[in-house]
Amino acid sequence: MGFIGKIIVLAGVIAAVWFGWRWWQRVQSGQLERPRSPTPRDDPRPREDSKPPRAASDMLRCPVCDDYVSVNARRCERPTCPRG
Protein backbone atom coordinates (compact mmCIF):
# COMPACT_ATOMS: atom_id res chain seq x y z
CA MET A 1 0.00 0.00 0.00
CA GLY A 2 1.39 3.35 -1.01
CA PHE A 3 1.69 6.60 0.85
CA ILE A 4 -1.68 7.94 -0.37
CA GLY A 5 -3.41 4.75 0.79
CA LYS A 6 -1.94 5.12 4.28
CA ILE A 7 -3.13 8.73 4.45
CA ILE A 8 -6.66 7.69 3.43
CA VAL A 9 -6.74 4.89 6.02
CA LEU A 10 -5.46 7.30 8.71
CA ALA A 11 -8.14 9.87 7.82
CA GLY A 12 -10.82 7.14 7.99
CA VAL A 13 -9.63 6.00 11.42
CA ILE A 14 -9.58 9.58 12.72
CA ALA A 15 -13.09 10.22 11.37
CA ALA A 16 -14.41 6.99 12.90
CA VAL A 17 -12.93 7.85 16.30
CA TRP A 18 -14.29 11.42 16.14
CA PHE A 19 -17.87 10.41 15.22
CA GLY A 20 -17.78 7.54 17.71
CA TRP A 21 -16.74 9.93 20.47
CA ARG A 22 -19.56 12.37 19.60
CA TRP A 23 -22.09 9.52 19.60
CA TRP A 24 -20.81 8.26 22.96
CA GLN A 25 -21.08 11.73 24.50
CA ARG A 26 -24.71 12.02 23.35
CA VAL A 27 -25.53 8.60 24.83
CA GLN A 28 -23.90 9.53 28.14
CA SER A 29 -25.75 12.83 28.40
CA GLY A 30 -29.10 11.13 27.72
CA GLN A 31 -29.80 13.28 24.71
CA LEU A 32 -30.87 10.31 22.57
CA GLU A 33 -33.59 9.20 25.02
CA ARG A 34 -35.22 12.61 25.57
CA PRO A 35 -38.06 13.67 23.29
CA ARG A 36 -37.19 16.62 21.11
CA SER A 37 -38.95 19.89 21.87
CA PRO A 38 -40.67 21.48 18.88
CA THR A 39 -38.87 24.31 17.17
CA PRO A 40 -40.71 27.60 16.54
CA ARG A 41 -41.18 26.59 12.90
CA ASP A 42 -42.85 23.31 13.93
CA ASP A 43 -45.32 25.05 16.24
CA PRO A 44 -48.59 25.60 14.32
CA ARG A 45 -49.82 28.23 16.79
CA PRO A 46 -49.12 31.85 15.87
CA ARG A 47 -46.64 33.71 18.01
CA GLU A 48 -48.03 36.05 20.61
CA ASP A 49 -45.87 38.95 19.54
CA SER A 50 -46.80 38.64 15.86
CA LYS A 51 -48.96 41.42 14.52
CA PRO A 52 -51.76 40.94 12.02
CA PRO A 53 -50.79 41.99 8.51
CA ARG A 54 -51.62 45.58 7.66
CA ALA A 55 -53.78 46.30 4.69
CA ALA A 56 -52.03 47.94 1.76
CA SER A 57 -53.39 51.12 0.26
CA ASP A 58 -53.01 52.50 -3.24
CA MET A 59 -50.72 55.47 -3.68
CA LEU A 60 -51.02 58.38 -6.10
CA ARG A 61 -48.42 60.92 -7.08
CA CYS A 62 -49.26 64.46 -5.98
CA PRO A 63 -48.92 66.87 -8.91
CA VAL A 64 -47.96 69.73 -6.59
CA CYS A 65 -45.20 68.27 -4.40
CA ASP A 66 -44.33 65.08 -6.36
CA ASP A 67 -44.77 62.92 -3.25
CA TYR A 68 -46.75 59.72 -3.24
CA VAL A 69 -49.78 59.90 -0.95
CA SER A 70 -52.51 57.46 -0.10
CA VAL A 71 -55.73 57.55 -2.09
CA ASN A 72 -57.63 58.00 1.17
CA ALA A 73 -55.33 60.76 2.47
CA ARG A 74 -56.79 64.01 3.74
CA ARG A 75 -55.82 67.46 2.55
CA CYS A 76 -52.41 68.70 3.63
CA GLU A 77 -51.56 72.23 4.85
CA ARG A 78 -50.40 73.52 1.47
CA PRO A 79 -52.76 76.01 -0.10
CA THR A 80 -52.30 74.44 -3.56
CA CYS A 81 -53.20 70.93 -2.41
CA PRO A 82 -55.40 69.22 -5.03
CA ARG A 83 -57.18 67.19 -2.35
CA GLY A 84 -60.33 68.97 -1.49
Rank of each mutant, 00 (worst) to 15 (best):
S29N: 11
V71R: 00
A16H: 02
D43V: 15
P79E: 14
V13D: 02
G30L: 09
G20W: 03
A55K: 12
Q28V: 00
P40L: 13
C76G: 13
W18T: 13
C65Y: 08
W21E: 04
D67T: 05
R83T: 07
P53W: 03
D43S: 10
G84T: 07
S50Q: 11
P46E: 12
L10T: 15
S37R: 15
D67Q: 10
R41Q: 15
C81I: 15
V71A: 10
W23G: 05
R36K: 13
Y68W: 13
R47L: 00
V71G: 03
Q28E: 06
A11N: 01
G12F: 04
A55Y: 00
D67L: 05
E33M: 05
R41V: 10
V17I: 15
G20V: 01
R75C: 01
M1C: 13
W18D: 05
G84W: 02
V69Q: 08
E48A: 13
P40S: 13
V27W: 01
R83E: 00
I14N: 01
K51M: 09
R54Q: 14
C81W: 14
E33V: 07
P79D: 12
C62G: 10
P53I: 00
D42R: 06
V27I: 06
D42F: 04
S70F: 03
E48N: 08
E33S: 06
I14F: 10
Q28K: 09
V69P: 03
